[in-house]
Design a protein around this nucleic acid. Structure first.
Lengths: 331, 331
DNA sequence: CTGTTAGCGCTTTCAG
DNA sequence: CTGAAAGCGCTAACAG
């Protein structure tokens, strides 16, 4: 009646071999006589034995798992990335542990806990954006880490060019004849936001235009924020209204569209809107947007991480993924 | 230079105590002199020591992690459920391991691997829908399992009443004056699909109506399937067209809407559409649909699982979550 | 209150 | 090719 407690010793005993041998067949070691292997395998079936991975991992010093660290759980962006991650992991027999670490917490400390926990062989940190000194500390750790959506020469990193993305959007708007453009940005301290803002200003400057202070807003990349900030802009005297709005995320663009609809303002006739990300919703809502290859970001991150774990990488892998402007009906 | 290899012995040595004491402060055991604790804590900081959780887990026989088993990764339904799961887990210091198990695989075998792996203290299986005999086998295992979106008296289970949901939808359509209704279902073998079909037929029969065989389609709950199946229906002589279509998922409803748009058929004037799930997109696309509380499903699943793990549950927890019809613009 | 000593269940030399 | 033994790093009695 030793129900579930069957372990490697039970198998060894019943198969009349040593536990070493059982371990070998478990790990497909080639140096086991076929006959012996068959017998052990038989007993394993009989006993419905399945190894305790905790013990396996501790003994072998590898976790057979990877960790994904995300700042805010399951928003559209991460869902896409996760899909790519899952796809890349499909074939492997590697577990996926999801860690959510809030931006405002002691991120580094939590990450170090994970690193030292030995529960994962490697980590993909998505849009982490921690400070430079924190990165330095992380460098001291020997575990493979890939930064997704973050450029950093001291790590494997796969990123998107925010500057270029913003430039594409503004360039397009300019080409459509817009001169007075508003930019509804995300979190003010976000590196992504900062770089996108720079891109906006760059192109504007190149065309002898400026971004009016009253047409630059900071929020948090979410729908609600787009809605509120757009309303603020519409509170300005109508003469000051922009003819186009560039949003730092599609979620914000959606909020902007709602605000516009509420005020009965025609899009794009009266005010054009360009989003950022190309989340699935953007397609359904026909939002013109800057496409970020999030799925690919996830997929590639895992590929790189697995290579790094296997020691197949000699240098830090660096790749900038291409962005694309997707023209639809809002601009 | 023993960089990262600092373990409990190093801490014990430097703090001039036994490893037992270190372990005790690690686990907040009350029976440690404050003075000693302080000293140990100091050394821990100094050495930047963080426990190896693999070892902790093996020794303590608990994983401090739970596993989520999903059939198809990250679709709208699961994303919502995951949000709930994450929210419920927020406060706990419990890891979340995501397992994807394809429907067509040897599901039970994979689940048993997970169970015996000892990497998780409990499991939430979402929309698993394995056979009765498989459930029986699972019963033999001592690990807490909660079935989310699946009713089964032998497990903790939190579910939605498919029959009722389908009935609500059809009832509503009937009230709107529709007599000729089509049902675009999901996978033919899905218990959810089967029950929803039953609900549809129930209400129809109660009103002396029948579901025309040509107006009953089976697909796979995805957008593409809704699109294709609707097109098939529109291939029928126009006299045979339904005046309303009920879809087994919002994803399918979206596909249906696309097909209708392509054929320039007005919704709901010419053909009304009712979806199922109330995914986020449904809101933006103004789809009338049956709301399933997916977030709550996830949240509650974790609450129940945690209680089960802590041994606070004496019986199998059973709850049916309420559905709601959300009237919007497609019907 | 604290040190010591067994394990937890497996992997991995090391002999043979 | 295979058995025995030494850990992996920590928890949990058990003495004291």
């Amino acid at each position: 009646m030793a129900k579930d407690k069957v372990n490697i010793y039970d198998v060894a005993a019943k198969a009349e071999v040593g536990i070493g041998t059982v371990s070998r067949v478990l790990n497909n070691s080639p140096k086991v006589k076929t006959e012996t292997r068959t017998k052990v395998l038989e007993v394993i079936k009989e006993l419905n034995y399945r190894p305790n991975k905790l013990a396996q991992n501790l003994a072998s010093q590898k976790a057979n798992a990877i960790g994904i660290i995300v700042p805010t759980f399951i928003d559209h962006f991460f869902v896409e990335v996760l899909k790519g991650i899952q796809a890349a992991l499909e074939a492997e027999k590697i577990d996926l542990i999801l860690y959510k670490i809030d931006k405002d917490q002691a991120m580094l400390d939590k990450i170090l806990d994970i690193v030292h926990s030995k529960k994962v062989d490697g980590i993909v940190a998505v849009t982490m954006d921690i400070g430079e000194e924190d990165y330095q500390q992380l460098l001291a750790e020997e575990i493979p880490i890939v930064l997704a959506d973050e450029k950093n020469d001291d790590f494997h990193s796969i990123y998107l060019n925010d500057l270029k993305g913003a430039e594409m959007a503004i360039q397009y708007l300019l080409a459509q004849g817009h001169q007075k453009i508003a930019f509804i940005n995300g979190v003010q301290t976000s590196q992504h936001g900062i770089r996108r803002l720079k891109g906006v200003k760059n192109i504007l400057a190149k065309n002898d235009l400026v971004l009016e202070p009253e047409l630059l807003k900071f929020g948090d990349f979410k729908t609600e924020s787009g809605y509120k900030l757009m309303l603020e802009i519409l509170d300005l005297p109508q003469a000051n209204w922009p003819t186009a709005v560039f949003a730092a995320s599609d979620n914000q663009a959606i909020g902007i569209l709602e605000a516009l609809k509420e005020k009965n303002i025609k899009v794009p006739a009266e005010i054009a809107v360009v989003g950022y990300d190309n989340i699935e919703l953007a397609e359904y809502l026909k939002i013109t947007t800057v496409w970020q290859p999030m799925y690919k970001l996830g997929y590639l991150s895992i590929e790189v991480l697995l290579k790094a774990i296997r020691g197949e990488l000699n240098n830090f892998y660096q790749t900038e993924l291409e962005l694309k402007l997707i023209k639809r009906e809002t601009a």
